[in-house]
Design a protein around this nucleic acid. Structure first.
Lengths: 235, 235
DNA sequence: TCCAAACTGTTCAATATTGAACAGTTTTCA
DNA sequence: TGAAAACTGTTCAATATTGAACAGTTTGGA
């Protein structure tokens, strides 16, 4: 949420950061949809804008062309959890294809964001008729699955200290919204707490501990050193 | 693991319990593969037999025709976690399609089990050429995704007491390996602890609490009453 | 430039969880 | 049938986590 970026118009998608390297050859759904002559809806959002909210009717799949989106869930007591931070090249909202009728999460832009909205019906048809698209989608689902399963295992095995360390390493490696590697991180302790399922109090405690031990540096921006790995790996 | 079932020969798949109702019309991969004239490998396992172990090379997708399979993961310290219990009609091992080269979990039969082993290469081809199969697979992936995400949210939000209550309700509803609803449960406190990410000590504590309050009954077999829901729902 | 909102640093008592121990019970299988 | 293995019941001290409070700092935007 860099102040200077807030009012910048999202540029035409020109690169596919984050997971682009795991997908070859480069794929541009925009171009693809154009060439396939299919109906498409393009929408743009500013940081903090809501793409849709938990409980809304679910009838479209979203493809992120550019930018970043955070998915959050709130429970009955109002506690909030961040379940994913997605970047360009990611799909979400696929739940509706499996019959989910309402959105299970709230999607909020974390950067100037351009998305393609693909209606459920159209999505189904494309999965049948367009092989490249179908491959891309299945690959996305598999990757996502692996990732969520890793998060679950992380929760099952690890203390909040290790979970924080792991989350920081992942964010520093991949970038919060698909920036080049080794980007300084901008993320609040509150959000970190929501991501790893603990309290800000705990996050603050560990952040200071990590800083004292030289595993991270921060004031505003967070720099994660590789030495933080020792926290995750230590017996 | 009912003693009397241990040596029973798995019958030819005739029903598709568990999630079968969410899939219409009924689908039999065996028949399908036969009719499609594709190469298939059928294998059978007894309870406690290992289908494959964490770390093994991963190059096939498995489809459970009959029976049940438990997926577990161990971490460096030897702690074990149960990440899924699957039944007839479920796929697993799809990670290899996304480039995962080793098995991330150990798969162990929990009932007499018959599976189809589909090689990665063949799987890819079928996803392109066979629409019904492709639909089925995508639907499976979506359902699985939703389920794992729910587990993750459960971990992020809930105390171990609520997680235990939720897990018991799910097991009682769906059956550990796809039996008809309202089946008495046979599952150890140790396993429950591994599923919800806590200690047996804690599970025992809550089981006795639930029993005292009349939410469950058990001695050997566990009967879950609907009143247990109040634990999950309570503020 | 200045206020309000958002974020960080810090403290602490109340509560939850772990992990290990030991005895009693049930199940498995030679 | 009998011994070993697996499971349950119970206890408890050590440790981890929560949740709330309050003050100081930074940031966004009128």
């Amino acid at each position: 949420m860099a102040a200077t970026a807030v009012r910048r118009v999202p540029a035409k998608a020109s690169r596919s950061p984050k997971k682009a390297n795991s997908r070859s050859p480069a794929f541009n759904a925009q171009t693809f949809l154009d060439s396939a002559g299919l109906r498409r809806t393009v929408r743009q959002f500013w940081p903090k804008e809501t793409l849709f909210a938990q409980g809304d009717p679910a009838n479209s799949v979203i493809y992120i062309q550019e930018g970043g989106v955070r998915l959050t869930v709130v429970n009955e007591t109002g506690k909030e959890a961040v379940v994913a931070i997605l970047g360009a090249g990611d799909f979400f909202g696929e739940g509706c294809l499996a019959g989910q009728s309402v959105c299970m999460a709230t999607a909020t832009a974390v950067a100037p964001t351009t998305v393609l909205v693909i209606e459920k019906k159209e999505m189904s048809r494309m999965l049948h008729t367009e092989h490249e698209f179908s491959d891309r989608f299945i690959s996305h689902m598999l990757t996502r699955n692996i990732h969520v399963e890793e998060d679950l295992i992380d929760q099952l095995f690890n203390s909040s200290e290790k979970r924080l360390a792991r989350t920081l390493l992942l964010l520093a490696r991949y970038g919060e919204k698909g920036q080049p590697p080794a980007t300084p991180l901008k993320i609040s302790q509150e959000t970190l707490a929501e991501m790893i399922g603990t309290t800000r109090s705990r996050v603050n405690f560990f952040m200071n501990k990590f800083r004292k031990l030289g595993f991270i540096e921060y004031n505003g921006e967070i720099h994660v050193n590789n030495s933080l790995l020792s926290v995750v790996l230590h017996d």
